[in-house]
Computed example of a mutant assay.
Amino acid sequence: MPLYWDWCVCAEEVTGRKRLWLLTEKAGGREQIWALLLETVRTHYDHLDRIAADAARLGYEKAAEILRTRMPTDERARSGDFGEILASELAEDTLGFRIPVKRLRFKDGRNMALRGDDFIGVVVAEGSQLRLLKGESKSRQELAKPAITEGREALNRDDGRCTPESLLFVADRLLDSNDPADQALGRALRDEIGQKSLPPGRIDHMLFTLSGNAPPPSLKADLDGAGSDRSQYSVNLCVPDHGEFIGTVFVEAAKLGNA
């Protein structure tokens, strides 16, 4: 967990297939992971090798301008995107899922919210069995029950399966790859859309929340009430200076080299 373990401490509660993770920043943790965090944010909007090629060809400032064109300027859009970024990184770092498509690279307006599942994780388990992670993220200065309820409703939509449009988007991007393994995974995802063969036990759910306040009791109550036929993960990362922190992250992530 290269980002989170140096940054946060985690209190965990486990009941059967349900896990509640409460993350808080360590003293000095933010400073320790700052450079990695900025790089991570950049990767969700563009390929690092393309950014480097822009810088070599045009210089740092013009390359930074290209990157800024992709990144949101609106406070609410930044908050939502940042929640998705942190949720995706946590899912990959801790659960063994691969988030094969960084969907923020495909926004058709930098301040617009993307529709569909916030993040989808995939893994091919032993015996070539496909397993999926359906994820929702909520980022709020003051996290309260309505946002948690909204996230749970999204997870339960489509009988708890990844929404077909979101899964097809991931599948198509994998089929565009030159990697035969990616192409095979893309075909497997398209098959799942058509066949709906995965049982609930192989479609995990994660509700990730980023907030300026400590998580309300409704977060645990929501997890307690969630279905027990699949693995359920509820996460809160508490960052007291939520809005200021997110704003600073985006301003600094849009700077390159000596720009």
Rank of each mutant, 00 (worst) to 15 (best):
F250T: 09
A147Q: 04
S88F: 07
G151F: 03
T94H: 05
L133E: 06
D224L: 04
L189P: 05
G247H: 09
I246T: 09
K138N: 02
D118Y: 05
N258T: 14
R76L: 15
M1R: 06
L37Y: 05
V14H: 14
L133R: 01
R70V: 14
H47Q: 12
L48H: 11
F97V: 13
T94P: 00
G135D: 07
L132M: 04
S177E: 04
W5N: 05
E13H: 09
W21V: 04
L207T: 08
L175S: 07
P100E: 11
L86N: 06
E75M: 03
I193K: 11
E39W: 03
S231L: 07
S139A: 15
A63K: 09
R202E: 11
S234I: 00
D6A: 12
P180W: 09
T43H: 13
R78K: 14
A181H: 06
R17E: 03
T163E: 09
L67Q: 02
K196C: 11
R157N: 12
E65H: 08
F245W: 14
F169K: 10
P217L: 02
R157K: 12
M71A: 07
Q129C: 01
D81V: 06
R78S: 03
L38R: 12
L168A: 15
R140T: 07
S177H: 10
Y4I: 00
S79T: 12
L86H: 04
S231A: 15
G96N: 13
T149D: 09
K196P: 09
L90M: 11
A144D: 13
P199R: 07
L237P: 05
L67A: 06
E126Y: 06
E75W: 01
Y4L: 05
P217F: 02
N178V: 13
D229W: 00
E31S: 10
L143A: 01
W34T: 10
R42E: 10
A125C: 13
T94S: 08
P199W: 07
L20T: 03
D108R: 10
V170D: 07
E136L: 05
L20C: 11
R110N: 14
Y45I: 08
D229Q: 03
I51D: 14
L189M: 12
V251G: 01
T69Q: 05
T24N: 14
G96M: 12
R42G: 12
G135V: 03
E126M: 08
G186Y: 02
L132V: 05
S79R: 11
E153L: 08
E61G: 13
V249M: 10
D93S: 15
T40E: 02
L23K: 03
S218D: 08
T69N: 01
V170G: 02
E84F: 01
V170C: 04
L38V: 13
G212T: 04
K26V: 05
M206N: 08
G96L: 13
G80I: 08
R103T: 12
